[in-house]
Design a protein around this nucleic acid. Sequence first.
DNA 1: CGGAAATTTGAGCAATTTCAACATGGGTGG
DNA 2: CCACCCATGTTGAAATTGCTCAAATTTCCG
Lengths: 228, 228
Amino acid sequence: MAQRVLSDTINTGFVKNISLFSGLSEEEKDLLLRNGSIYFYNRKDTLFRRGDPVTHFYVICSGQVKLFHQTAEGCDVTTDIRIAGDTICTTGIFALHPHHHTHAEVIKDSTIMEFPMQWLKDAARAHNAVSMNLLSALSRHGHRQTMEMENQTCMTPVQLLAGFLQQTCRAQGLNPHGFTLPFSKTLIASRLSMSPETFSRALPKLKEMGINVTGTHVSLYGSQEMKH
Amino acid sequence: MAQRVLSDTINTGFVKNISLFSGLSEEEKDLLLRNGSIYFYNRKDTLFRRGDPVTHFYVICSGQVKLFHQTAEGCDVTTDIRIAGDTICTTGIFALHPHHHTHAEVIKDSTIMEFPMQWLKDAARAHNAVSMNLLSALSRHGHRQTMEMENQTCMTPVQLLAGFLQQTCRAQGLNPHGFTLPFSKTLIASRLSMSPETFSRALPKLKEMGINVTGTHVSLYGSQEMKH
DNA sequence: CGGAAATTTGAGCAATTTCAACATGGGTGG
DNA sequence: CCACCCATGTTGAAATTGCTCAAATTTCCG
C-alpha cells in the first residue's frame, strides 16, 4: 500500500519551514528531522483508521489527505482536507486515549513525512519553542473550528460555499480572478456537510455574489467581502 | 457590574486542583495563584464581548458562564457552557489576533478567578508542566469539538439531546437515576443549535430511549449506551 | 397577586435531503 | 481510433423535517 522512499531522494527542505519548527536553529531542525521517514502513498490509500493507536505524527510534503468520520448509516462526513505543508495529528497527540478519532485517507498521490509520536512528545518537552508552536497551532485550529461550527449552523449552503471558495483561494494563494478547484465537488460538498445535489444547485446562485464557477474553473470577481 | 472580592474571603483551594496546575509543586501553585484576583459576577453580567482584547485568563470557581456568538440576524448561538472548575480562554491565548472571538455572559451568579494573560504565557514558558497541561487541555478540547461537529451534522435533534443529557450527567457527576437539569431548556436548545420548539418536541421522544424528562427532573434509566 | 419570562403545542412553510434519471468525461481494452 | 464503463456531476420531483409564527400554559419572582 505505502511504499517507503529514501529521504535522500526527496527534497525535505520545506518541511523545516512549517510553523511547528519555527524558532528553532538549523541544527535543531536537522536533528529533529532525522527522525522522520518519508513515505509515498497512492490515492485511496488509508493513512490510519478510527480506533487505530496513534503511532505517528505526519507532515504532508505533497498531495492531499482527507480526514473523515463514518456514521452508523455509512455516510461519510469529511472533517477536514489537508494539503502540502499541513500536519496531521497534532491535535490528538496529547489526548488521553491514544487512539485516532477519525479515518484518514489519501485522496491524491502524496508524499508524507512521518515521525514517531513519542518523538514529538519528547521534542515538545525538550524544546520550549516546539511547545509554543504546538500551542499556537492548536489554538489557531480550535479557533477555526469554532468559527466553522458557528457558520455551519447559521449560514445557508450558498453562503457556506462562497466562504469556502474564498478561504480556499486565500489559503492556497490562488488567483481570485481565475483558478482551478483544488478539490472534487463531491469532496467539498462532504466537507461542508451538504449533499452533492445541494452543492450543485448552489453553484448558479453564487453568481449573484460575484462568484462564477464553470466546470472546475472558479473566479471571485467581487472579492470585496472577505471574512476576517 | 463586577464586584472585586478579596481573595482571602474565598476558598481558592480547589483552583489548585484544576488540570492546568497538575504536576506543579505546592510552592509553584501558590506562587502562580498569587497573580489571580477573584471577582464576583451577577447573572447577565458580561465577562467580555467579541472583539474585546484578550486581557485575562479565567477560572470559574462557582456559577455558570455561556460563550456565544451573535449572528447578523440577531439569533444567538451558544458555543459552550462553562461551569465551576472550567477555564475560559485557554484556546485564545496563543492565537494570532489578540481579540476574543465570542461573547461571554454570566448566566448564574459566579465567582471567577482572573489571571493576566501575560502571566499565563510566562507560566507556560517557565513551567514546562504548564505547557504540557495546556497542550493536553487544548487537545482534549479540540477532540471534543470535532466529535461535536460530527454529531451536529449527522444526528437528529432527539439523538443530540440524548447525548447531551448523558454527557452532562457524567461530566457533572450527577445521579443518572434522577437529577435536576443544571441549565435552562432554552439554553440547552441554543447549545444544541435547535429551536426551543424542536427541543420541547424532542423531550417526549426520549422516552423510547429510556430517558425521562419531567419539568426539570431527568432520569436516564437505560444508560446502557453511553457514547465513550 | 400580577407581570414577565420560559415552556409547550398547533399549523403551515421553506429548504434540504432523497430517490431517480440523465449527462459528462476520462480511461481502458479491443 | 472507437466503443464502453465507471466515476462524477447535474437536474427534476417528491418527501421529510426542522423552523417560524401564534397562542395557550406554566413557572418564576418581586
